[in-house]
Each structure stands twice: as structure tokens, then as C-alpha cells.
Design a protein around this nucleic acid. Structure first.
Lengths: 354, 354
DNA sequence: CTGAAAGCGCTTACAG
DNA sequence: CTGAAAGCGCTTACAG
């Protein structure tokens, strides 16, 4: 009887069938070259017909000394909002999960109020030549420039939180901003009486970072238009985030328009408006964005009524994991991963996982 | 110069320091016995001071032939609701993720309308002696019995979707049911006019599976009481899920109580009530539970206004992963993992991930 | 262009 | 009670 070891595993079985050594098999699996076309073809055929899937445990174990480095580039937590705390936690969660596979993550931060800080940090990132990058592209021009350089260096990158279309990013993970504003309006339509007006408030120091706020505003207005809602919509932009300035801008609106029933703030700075509404005891429904501690406090007090949130921590987590899937596992990743649009109120925030 | 190989890894380094072989180290790591107290202590001390973390890649690779089997026991998809589709998908997602570690999942299903089917399948599960079990305990008595047997056999189990307190389950993953109803009422409080009544509808064939519906109802009523809302609350239980029966029960309510402004259905069967409301052209706001295709259709049509949902797929995914963390990784898992309470409406359901 | 050997960190018999 | 050796599925020099 012939010795029939049918249960040979992966590379060994391929080698046996192709009558070559496993070294050669490895060479064609990784396209390392130095293999004659004939044997290469033969091995590839066998791989296909076996539907061979490499054992990642073996792989990573053998490559024990090869560390893969990802870089993340997001805003630092600022006085105006603690929004960026959650993404950092998401990054760390992903890091813990994949460190088993010798992946290290270097975290870089820029200042949302300081455009130049982005370019500075971006340069550092590039110098390190990480194998993959997760980027929150708050500054459009600079981010486009950065993306171009990544393309040149052949470093895959993922956008999170806000997208810059037409870049060759591996993936975008975050809100569909128009839809986010649109759904806010859908919610608002239940909260508003026929004769009441709406006030939209954009709070942001930098014009440059406004593109995503405007998309939300468009979505909001789009809903009203599509559904022929006749409530008047007023709007103000607040650039200076000091209480006195905010009051100076809001006071005249409330005196001129007596029947504002609802205020919609397009980002996480809603707490600053809440402060005003509490102080001045305005009787309005307040809808804003994001699960950050300042906002939760006003939610608890009943000043903020609804927060719309899109799991920033999860966004960052998924961003890192997308790099991991692409670079380590060699799996395809979706080009757009849109986050669910969550509605947070006083009675469900305690179970919300950011 | 002394040969100084300081960079020895895990078990080898422990063995070197303890002046024993790695075999002995392995014995104490796994408490396999057959080690003298003295060397055992010494090795344990070294492990502690090194803060040794075993390399799971090496571990699983070496244990290539040891397959760990989990069993899942959930209801099968029924005519009344496709709710249980999502958990099955969640289980499969978890399975794909951990099969790398030689974990297999055997999936068992029982019939929600057939109490005896649970006991039958449960017996099969136990006979297989899986290393861990994920269970949706719809039938209380039977589940308690089953849990007891698992305890005896020393098989860890996780509950999902509804909890049976005071069992020694590893974890519960699902909604906090009272809170879920409470938050539904919080939402409803914005949608209801002062003079309008509320109708609560429980739709369920089996009394036995009702315990979780009643908890939600309690929470709903609790909110109204706490906030001194004065709207009348009516309630009916529907046991026969045929349109004619549903109509027979709902018609009199709507004729007697003319000012019902909102209907709250406590589970995923809300589509059956939606059917009625559409046919009879009742002008009410309809709030129900769960992201299932029947409901989404009515959401799209504007018959159902809000769905509350708690990611059943994610629940099952996390349930399996809790077993994995406990059994394979030896990590601690939380006793209660409460899911976020999500609000779904027409304009955000398309991004919802179940 | 190809093969044989060593090694990644662990577990598993087997021998003593 | 303890050690030495083989092996898991892969990658990496090195030799030819």
C-alpha cells in the first residue's frame, strides 16, 4: 500500500502536489520573484484548486520580528469640545485588539484652531513612513495635500469623521453629513408646532472647518423643503466662543423673532448655546450634536432635549480595523462606511456606547 | 564576556530564570499538576514579576487539533416576526472572526410557539457538551432548568435578549427592559398632545414569553407616573395574530376612546398593528419595536413613526465573543452588557446596523 | 531558480 | 516530579 498522508496542511500540501519545496511555494504566494514561470504557474493553479487560505497564526508567528506601524492623525481635545476624546479611545481599543499581530499605532494630534499645526504634524507622520494612516481631515486644503503625498509614498489612508471625496483613500468612515442634517429635521418636524420658527446655529471659530457643518445645514433645509414645511428658518453663525459674544448674537434674534420654538445647533458646541438658553430662560426645544460630557450635563438638566450622535469612538475603531483588514489580512474594505445616526435623550444616554 | 541572551521570550525566559525546562513551566501555567510545590511557587513568582502574558498565536498554533465548540440556542425565524434573523447573522459574524482560533459554533433553534421544542433542543445541546453556550431564554421555567444543568456540567452560558436574574450565567447581553419602555415614554412625551390618550398593545401568542413585554410596559408607565403626565393610558393584549382578530380587538377601543393619539406596541409585532392602522386609516402616531423588514416597510410608508431597537445582531455577536473572551482568552467579562436604546425613523433606518 | 534548515511561542506525548 | 524532542503553519536567511 502506498503511504498516503492525505492530511498535509497548507504550504506543505501545495509543495507536495507541485513537487517543490515549501520555500518555493512561499515565494509565489508572496510574489517574491525568482521562480521560473513554469513552476510559478503550476503552484498558482494548485493554490487555486485547493482554495488555499493561509493560516494567519502561523504567518504572524513566523514574522515575529516584523512590526507593522499605523499612524493616526486627529485633532487634540480642546477647550471648546471634548469630542475628540472618544476617537482616541476607539483607537486604543483597536490597538489592544490587534497588538497580538504585532501592530503598533503611533498617535499624532493637531490643533483644530491652528491650521499650521496640521501641516507640522503631517510632515512628522510622513517622515515615519507608517504602513497605514487614519486621518480626520478637518482642514481641506492641507488634507488634500497630505493625501497626495500619501499616494506618492504608496501609503494607504482612511478618512474619518468628515470626507474629502475624489481622493484615493482606502475608505471613509463617518457620517453621511447631508443625511445627518436631514434626519435631524425629520425629528424636529415632530417637535415643532405649525406656527413656530426654527433657529439654526453654527458655532465654529474657523471658516475652514465649516464644510461639514454646512452639509448638515443643507440636509436640514432639504427636509423642510421636500416636505413643504412652512416654518421659518433663521440662522446665525457664531465665531467667537465666549458667553458674552454668544449672548450678543443670540439676544437680538430672540427679541426680533418672538416665536422661535426650536434651536438646532449643527455640532458638538451645542453646550454653549445651552448655557445661554438656561441663563436667559428661553422656552425652546434644543437639538444638537454629539455625546460629550458638557452636552450630557445639559441633557440631564433638560436644557438640551435631543443629541444626534454618530459614535466617534466606533468610527476611529473601525478606521484602524479597516487598515488592519486591508494591510494585515489582505481583505477588501468598503469604500464608504456610514455610521448610524443615533438619537440620544435624557432617558437613553446612559446606555449609549460612544 | 558572559554569553548574555537577555532577549529570551515567554516560557523560555521563565524556564531559564527558574532553571527548569519549558515543559515544567507549561505545567504550572496550566495548573496541570505533577510539579513539586517548591518549583511551582518559584515559577509562579517569576511569572508574576515578569507580568508574563502568553502569546496566543503560539498557543493556538500549538493546539492546532483542539477544537473548541460553542452552542447557540435561539428561536427560529417565524411567520410572526423575522426578528431572529439578525441574531443568527451576528452569530455567524462572530464565528467568522474566531474560527482562526479553532472555535466552531453549533447553532440550535427552537420554536417560540412550541414550548416543548425548547426542551427537546436543549437536551441535544447538553448531550454535545459544548464548551460554552449562548442562550435566548424565552421560556422561563425551561430556561431555569437548562441553566441548572449547565451549572452541573460546568458549562458557562450567556443569556441574550432577555435576562433571567439570579442564575449563575457568565453574562447577560441585551436590553434593560424597564429602561427601554421608560425611554419609549420619554420619546412619546414629545409626540403627544395634552388631551390625547395612549394605547399600549401587547401582541404575543404565548403568555410565557410575555415577561419581557410586561417589563417594558412597566417602564413606559413608570415614566408617565414620574413625570405626572396626565394622558390616559389604555391597554390591550392580542393573543391571536390574524388580521380579523386584531381588528375585532382594536375596533372597539377606537370607537370608545375617540382621542387616542398614539399607539405603543411593545415588541416587533408592531407591523400587525400597522396593518390595521393603515387599513382603517386611523390618524395616530405609531411607536413600536425592532428593525425587521415588515416594520421597515411601514416606516417607509409613514404608518409606523418610530421604532425602538437594540441591535439584536450585535447582542448575539457580543454573546459569542463573551464566551470567546472567557474561555479562550481567559479574560473577565462583564456580568451585564446593556445595549444602547436606539431610535429609528424613516430618515435614518438606512444607516442602521442591526 | 530552488531546497534544506532553523525558528517564531507554545503544547504534547514520551521517557526517565 | 522533570526534561528533551517533535510539531503546529508559516517565513527567513543561507547555500548551491
Amino acid at each position: 500500500m502506498a503511504k498516503h498522508k492525505s492530511s498535509l496542511s497548507g504550504v506543505k500540501e501545495i509543495a507536495r502536489r507541485a513537487k517543490v519545496s515549501i520555500g518555493t511555494v512561499d515565494r509565489v504566494i508572496h510574489n517574491r520573484g525568482g521562480v521560473s514561470p513554469k513552476t510559478k504557474e503550476k503552484i498558482q493553479r494548485i493554490i487555486k484548486q485547493m482554495d488555499y487560505q493561509p493560516n494567519l497564526l502561523g504567518r504572524r508567528l513566523a514574522m515575529h520580528n516584523k512590526v507593522t506601524t499605523f499612524a493616526t492623525l486627529i485633532p487634540k481635545v480642546s477647550d471648546e469640545t471634548s469630542f475628540w476624546e472618544a476617537p482616541l479611545k476607539g483607537i486604543e481599543r483597536a490597538e489592544a485588539e490587534i497588538k497580538l499581530y504585532n501592530v503598533k499605532i503611533e498617535k499624532y494630534f493637531y490643533d483644530l484652531n491652528e491650521k499650521s499645526s496640521f501641516a507640522d504634524v503631517a510632515k512628522k507622520v510622513l517622515k515615519k513612513k507608517p504602513q497605514g494612516i487614519l486621518l480626520a481631515p478637518s482642514f481641506i486644503e492641507e488634507s488634500i495635500d497630505f493625501a497626495g503625498k500619501c499616494d506618492t509614498l504608496n501609503i494607504p489612508y482612511v478618512f474619518m469623521d468628515s470626507d474629502i471625496p475624489h481622493r484615493s483613500s482606502l475608505s471613509y468612515i463617518g457620517p453621511e453629513l447631508y443625511r445627518s442634517g436631514y434626519m435631524a429635521a425629520n425629528l424636529v418636524s415632530y417637535l415643532l408646532k405649525d406656527n413656530e420658527d426654527v433657529l439654526i446655529v453654527n458655532v465654529s471659530k474657523q471658516m475652514e472647518t465649516d464644510h461639514h457643518l454646512l452639509r448638515k445645514e443643507d440636509g436640514f433645509r432639504g427636509y423642510f423643503k421636500e416636505h413643504h414645511l412652512k416654518n421659518d428658518i433663521h440662522k446665525i453663525d457664531i465665531r467667537k466662543i465666549k458667553y458674552r459674544e454668544i449672548k450678543k448674537q443670540l439676544d437680538p434674534v430672540f427679541t426680533k423673532k418672538k416665536n422661535i420654538g426650536l434651536v438646532f445647533v449643527t455640532n458638538s458646541r451645542v453646550s454653549h448655546v445651552a448655557h445661554y438658553i438656561k441663563e436667559e430662560q428661553k422656552d425652546v426645544i434644543l437639538v444638537g450634536y454629539d455625546f460629550v460630557k458638557e452636552n450630557i450635563q445639559y441633557l440631564d438638566e433638560g436644557i438640551i432635549n435631543f443629541l444626534i450622535c454618530q459614535k466617534p469612538g466606533e468610527q476611529a475603531y473601525k478606521g484602524v480595523m479597516a487598515l488592519y483588514k486591508h494591510i494585515i489580512l489582505g481583505l477588501p474594505v468598503e469604500e464608504h462606511i456610514y455610521m448610524p445616526i443615533d438619537v440620544i435623550m435624557k432617558s437613553n444616554y446612559s446606555f449609549y456606547s460612544n
